[in-house]
């Protein structure tokens, strides 16, 4: 009841979807439409997974008075405040909800990841070493691509963008294709494991 029935649901639906892919019969189409309608209703409630998890982490921090617990209040306040703005004034253009996005969320998110540029520059200086033949190949390819993607490369010689395009179209393509074939097989194997009930971590919930 607690674990077997959900596993059976995945197994039956999974098999039916494999069949659905190859059988364009009306029954198969009706099955798909039914699934779509029901799923749309169910996922309306899935928002609790993210919100609940964040709230639990921060309320626990506050309860335990963990280091910097005061900032957890700020996170909760921001969550409640942003949501409240959406519910009170709506989510259209020109509302406080969109103002918060444009002036709080967008700059914070963009800046947080832009910090990586500095650490990468530092790593380029201190860590990227041509220690072996393979590392040298990697660095040379990287330098050519870095030059070939900006106009300075073109200004030095028109060959640099051409070589860059060749690197991307030939050796890079071969490498990425081989990796993709591996990933594709892995994805297929994982999907089969889920359908057959071998992979079940997505259900969570320990031993219950």
């Amino acid at each position: 009841m607690k674990r077997t029935i959900p596993l059976l649901i995945v197994m039956i639906l999974g098999m039916m979807f494999v069949v659905h892919t190859f059988v364009p019969h009306k029954i198969s189409q009706d099955f798909y439409n039914w699934y779509q309608t029901w799923l749309k209703v169910m996922v309306s409630f899935a928002v609790i997974l993210g919100v609940g998890s964040l709230l639990m982490v921060h309320t626990n921090k506050i309860k335990r008075k963990a280091p910097a617990w005061g900032y957890s209040w700020l996170t909760i306040l921001a969550l409640v405040g942003t949501s409240a703005a959406g519910f009170i004034w709506g989510i259209e253009d020109g509302t406080p909800y969109m103002w918060i996005f444009e002036n709080v969320n967008a700059p914070l998110g963009a800046t947080m990841f832009s910090l990586l540029a500095f650490y990468m520059a530092s790593a380029a200086y201190k860590a990227f070493r041509a220690r072996s033949m393979e590392a040298t190949l990697l660095l040379i390819a990287a330098i050519i691509v870095m030059l070939g993607r900006v106009s300075i490369g073109n200004a030095i010689t028109e060959w640099i963008p051409d070589i860059t395009q060749w690197i991307l179209n030939v050796p890079n393509l071969a490498a990425k294709r081989a990796i993709k074939l591996g990933v594709g097989l892995g994805m297929t194997a994982t999907s089969l494991k889920i359908i057959l009930g071998i992979e079940r971590t997505y259900l969570g919930g320990g031993k219950q």
Binding site: R3, P6, I195
Partner: peptide, 20 residues
């Protein structure tokens, strides 16, 4: 907590299509 496995299982069913 086990009640949440039902909607999760339902949404996972579509992986069947991912195989082919």
């Amino acid at each position: 907590g086990w009640l949440s496995r039902y909607p999760i299982a339902f949404s996972m069913g579509i992986v069947g299509m991912g195989v082919p």
